[in-house]
Design a protein around this nucleic acid. Structure first.
Length: 990
RNA sequence: GCCCGAGUGGUGGAACUGGUAUACACGCACGACUUAAAAUCGUGUCUCGCAAGGGAUGUGGGUUCGAUUCCCACCUCGGGCACCA
């Protein structure tokens, strides 16, 4: 027998496939299918075994699609701009381009030996000027466009200019025009803070900044201090697409958690805006809130320290020095200190400034505090400490008043006792009678017990309650009711938190629905003297005393738990929806309805998003140049389309120049022409690369309309989940923009997305040089073969789960392939075997479905089961049917393309196994002739027996009862019920 | 704190729509072949029990003839967001 020499076989077929070009893709021909991997960043480190996991999966998937008759586009390329290449180049004193070329070559080699079915002629590289020409071209489109909210899409900036007053517009200077347009462009110039490291003379990315022992930010390299510096930047107006990005999620098949992350990131929030006028001023403070129903509870207003209004009002602020100091203090805090959630809130009052609540004209103080973010909503909030946790903490610290305006509401849904009333579930259809009432806590200071009422002949327990008569005060009602119901007469009012609840119930005695607002009143016994209780009252209930701890158990009222929370926690605030109170005409409205009405009358509804515009500039050399230039007057000019690509200048030094600006700012030939010195960020090139694969060598357009129309978009996208809020948002944004401009045919770039889990080191840690736990795929290919590596990576566990590498387990996959190899000796003409036939059909079904749903581990497992059965068959009859073996090879081919090709050809086939049609199963042959029927007694397995498929219940039941093990259990007992599940089980209930 | 996801043998994991829990593989033990070893093949391998039988899918409850699967509460781990008004 021929020896299984994986090295020779794999090399041989890789060469042969390359020669015969079987993986080349044409842009026509039948139904298309686009299978894409997230292209790699070719680092100097090379690959570890975790990297190819996704590539293997997509390769298996692509191979199956090809076998199913699709015209499959399955390309690979390199995302090679960015920091690591630049740093590698600086460290090794070579040009970044050289570093990239070298790393790309290494990657390609490492990938090739694994035997992927990529069409390498379609490869792209983001650093290739012929590629980034189109990245720059798309940038210019973004720069030249605005988002028209009326048409709900991006349009040429000219359509914006048309909306301006003609005369007014032409009277403006170029500079003014530029400033106005900049507020609309989808790519726009602005300012933002960066991590500036004076020690290195450069700007650092967030992950290049670490904390030293004292928690101060320092550079990862060298440990130099890092501070904030405001710098000129370019931005992408992602926020304009927030709604489309959100809505699009419903149209694509992505893992739910990725959709959740994106939804969360976009952070849509429906609320209202209100204008608070500033007393004795023309200015107003606009606030955003989602709780318009609490607006009558506003006791102050807070601005973000960076809010422009603060500077504008400076002359009216009497403590301006103090305010300025606070603003500076906040500015110098690093992000971590400012954002720490548990940190104590700080702020300063703007003395002399008074805001007017638009709903009731109340005058409230104005503060600045860094718990209000300048970048969200309007950068200002109305503070309602009674119903917002943050405002509550702030109010407590600075002694600001607290006004409660929303009260909890409880609707009786079943017959429960409550407040000593005979009440039950609200009856639909009956009118609702509103009433003011009290509910009384009476404490006996001697033993700290509370006065309770137990209703005779009912399970109801509660407190003393009663309706308010005429113009009685709460206290008067409370004392009167206590006296009537219990006889206690010497009581005094104590100061405890006052609160009220609304209770909706059906009043049985009065046959009416009641909506009672119970004001809680806290009394204390002065002494235990009591008058006799009227007979009528005494017949209804008895008096009991309960300690605080016993109350929770004692109350049968549905709102009992809430009341206890309130009693136990003096800081308890009610942040949920409820019923309005002390809110003028809106009293007794539910929160949601109140929000609607108050907004309509006093404000306007508004939708706000968390997502921020994305910074689109890096102060680095190794990125796409931004194709803009500045003239002497600071007017920005676009680099004409026909002059693209604007290539990076050849320079000797691309190291930081020490000002924080890009190294390009130190290149005279560059600055002489006024070119923008910032370069694009790493995500620019990766935001559209999948389109370039459709037409990678086109010199006229980024991809021809014909090819775009044919390939449309990516059908299956495979990559890591870590790109959820980066690449996967940005590329959707660019794609939607291109779609608005009718440059691409679909609204979404990636129809299906699947994430691969990480492969961890054997020590369960992330594979990295640092831990010394890196496993190199080259070594695995050499030792076990690419086919074994592929099978193992697909078999080790669920594709989307992170799993540790096991040096021990991979041997199992190797054994599997060797068994397949050895079995080839035993094929020939064999007698039909129904059981094997049935298993084969089941396996065809299972493997096909499992690949489609990316459950590769169970697909392999099914193949192993079939192999074991085939071996058993050979053991019994000495020969295995060629037909069965061939189908098996076809099923295995996507996973192990080399060895299956070799064995396939050995069987005498002239063409590649990769060209074969995917096997079909016969639904009629899926069932074996016999099935195991389990017999349960009372749900416990007691016996099982073999039966013919689809046999009827009666027959099987009779058979089951005859079994020894079953007889034993049912003997002398009555069979109450028998449950029958076809072809599976019989459960006898006794 | 909020939003997702996951907890099953010594290990990675399997189980369709509620229907024989632990498939498949690794490891381990024993046996065959061998002068020997490796490789290969075979047998066994959740747990308590001599057995009959009992107990096990993070913990505690519930629904059901029957729960890894559905519901409630809690614990642990992983991921995302984090003063978003």
């Amino acid at each position: 027998m021929k020896k299984y020499n994986h090295l020779a076989i794999e090399k041989k077929w890789q060469k042969e496939w390359d020669k015969s070009k079987i993986y080349r893709t044409k842009d026509t021909g039948g139904k298309k299918f686009y299978v894409l991997d997230m292209f790699p960043y070719p680092s100097g480190q090379g690959l570890h075994v975790g990297h190819p996991r996704g590539y293997i999966a997509s390769d298996v998937y692509a191979r199956q699609k090809r076998a199913q008759g699709y015209n499959v586009l399955h390309p690979m390329g390199y995302d090679a701009f960015g920091l690591p290449a630049e740093q590698y180049a600086i460290a090794n004193k070579i040009h970044p381009r050289q570093a990239v070329l070298k790393n790309v070559a290494t990657f390609r080699k490492q990938l090739e030996i694994i035997g992927f079915s990529y069409d390498w002629t379609r490869s792209v590289n983001t650093t290739d000027p012929e590629y980034y020409r189109w990245t720059q071209w798309i940038f210019l489109k973004l720069y030249g466009s605005w988002y028209n909210p009326k048409t709900n899409r991006a349009e040429d900036i000219k359509t914006l200019i048309k909306t301006f007053d003609k005369k007014d517009w032409s009277s403006k200077s170029e500079k003014e025009k530029q400033e106005i347009l900049m507020r609309y462009r989808l790519a726009y110039e602005g300012y933002s803070e960066v991590n500036w490291c004076p020690g290195l003379g450069t700007v650092l990315a967030n992950d290049e900044v670490v904390n030293d022992e004292k928690g101060n930010p320092v550079s990862e390299r060298g440990g130099f201090p890092v501070e904030k510096k405001t710098m000129r930047q370019w931005f992408m107006r992602v926020t304009a697409y927030a709604e489309k990005l959100l809505a699009g999620l419903d149209t694509i098949d992505w893992p739910n958690h990725i959709k959740d992350i994106q939804r969360n990131w976009i952070g849509r929030s429906e609320g209202s805006e209100f204008d608070f006028a500033i007393k004795n001023s023309e200015d107003t403070i606009t606030i955003f809130t989602t709780r318009a129903d609490t607006i009558f509870g506003v006791t102050y207003v807070v601005l973000a320290p960076e809010n422009k209004l603060v500077q504008k009002l400076s002359s009216k602020i009497s403590n301006w020095n103090e305010v300025q100091n606070y603003i500076n203090e906040v500015k110098n805090k690093d992000d971590e200190a400012r954002l720490a959630a548990d940190k104590e809130k700080t702020g300063v009052q703007l003395k002399g400034i008074v805001a007017i609540n638009p709903v009731n004209g109340e005058e409230v103080p104005v503060w600045i505090a860094d718990y209000v973010l300048a970048t969200y909503g309007t950068g200002a909030v109305m503070a309602v400490p009674a119903h917002d946790d943050r405002d509550f903490k702030f109010a407590n610290k600075y002694n600001l008043s607290i006004k409660r305006v929303v009260e909890p509401k409880f609707v009786a849904e079943e017959a429960t006792g409550g407040h000593g009333r005979a009440d039950s579930a609200v009856k639909p259809g009956l009118p609702m009678e509103k009433r003011n009432a009290v509910c009384v806590f009476v404490k006996n200071p001697k033993d700290d017990k509370y006065l309770c009422i137990k209703w005779r002949g009912t399970p109801m327990n509660g407190l003393v309650t009663g309706g308010i008569d005429g113009d009685e005060s709460y206290e008067e009602t409370a004392m009167r009711e206590v006296h009537e119901e219990t006889g206690y007469k010497n009581l005094k009012l104590v100061k405890e938190p006052d609160f009220a609840i609304h209770s909706l119930f059906y009043h049985r005695l009065k046959n009416t629905n009641r909506w009672a607002r119970f004001q809680y009143v806290f009394l204390e016994l002065i002494n235990e003297e009591r008058d006799p209780v009227a007979e009528k009252e005494a017949a209804l209930h008895e008096v009991v005393w309960k300690s605080k701890d016993e109350l929770k158990e004692f109350f049968t009222v549905i709102e009992g738990e809430f009341i206890i929370n309130f009693l136990n926690n003096p800081n308890y605030i009610f942040t949920e929806d409820g019923v309005l109170f002390k809110s003028g005409e809106f009293d007794f409205l539910d929160s949601s309805e109140a929000r609607r009405q108050i907004t309509e009358k006093f404000g306007r509804s508004k939708i706000t998003y968390k997502i921020r515009d994305a910074v689109f500039a890096r102060q680095r050399y190794w990125g796409e140049p931004i194709p803009l230039s500045y003239d002497r007057d600071g007017i920005i000019h676009e680099v004409p389309e026909k002059k693209l690509p604007l290539k990076l200048p050849e320079v000797k030094s691309y190291e930081p120049i020490g000002t924080g600006e890009s190294p390009l700012a130190g290149v005279k030939s560059w600055t002489d022409k006024g070119y923008e010195t910032n370069t694009m960020p790493g995500w620019a090139g990766s935001s559209w690369y999948f389109l370039r694969y459709m037409d990678p060598n086109n010199k006229k357009v980024f991809a021809s309309p014909k090819n775009l129309k044919y390939w449309k978009n990516v059908d299956m996208y495979v990559g890591g989940a870590e790109h959820a809020t980066g690449h996967l948002i940005y590329s959707r944004f660019w794609h939607k923009f291109l779609h608005d401009l009718k440059l691409v045919p679909t609204a979404e770039p990636f129809m299906k997305l699947r994430n691969q889990g990480m492969i961890l080191g054997t020590d369960q840690r992330k594979m990295s040089k640092r831990w010394g736990n890196v496993i190199n795929p080259d070594d695995m290919v050499k030792l076990y073969g690419a086919d074994t590596l592929r099978v193992y990576e697909m078999f080790m566990g669920p594709f989307d789960q992170s799993l540790p590498w096991s040096t021990e387990s991979i041997i199992g996959s190797r054994r599997f392939i060797e068994k397949v190899w050895r079995l080839s000796e035993k094929v020939g003409v064999a007698k039909p075997d129904k059981d094997l036939e049935s298993l084969l059909n089941k396996t065809i079904k299972k493997v096909g479905e499992d690949i489609e749903s990316m459950n590769f581990n169970t697909a392999i497992s099914a193949l192993m089961i079939l192999l074991n059965a085939m071996e058993k068959r050979v053991g019994e009859y000495g020969v295995l049917s060629v037909k069965v073996y061939e189908v098996f090879l076809q099923l295995l081919a996507p996973f192990a393309p080399h060895v299956t090709e070799e064995l396939w050809r050995d069987l005498g086939h002239k063409s590649s196994i990769q060209k074969e049609k995917w096997p079909k199963y016969d639904p009629k042959k899926l069932l074996s002739e016999t099935v195991q029927i389990s017999v349960q007694i009372n749900g416990k397995l007691r016996a099982s027996f073999e039966a013919v498929v689809d046999e009827d219940e009666k027959t099987l039941q009779n058979k089951a009862i005859m079994l020894e093990n079953v007889k034993k259990w049912i003997d002398g007992k009555e069979i109450k019920r028998v449950i029958f599940v076809k072809n599976r089980l019989i459960n006898i209930v006794i």
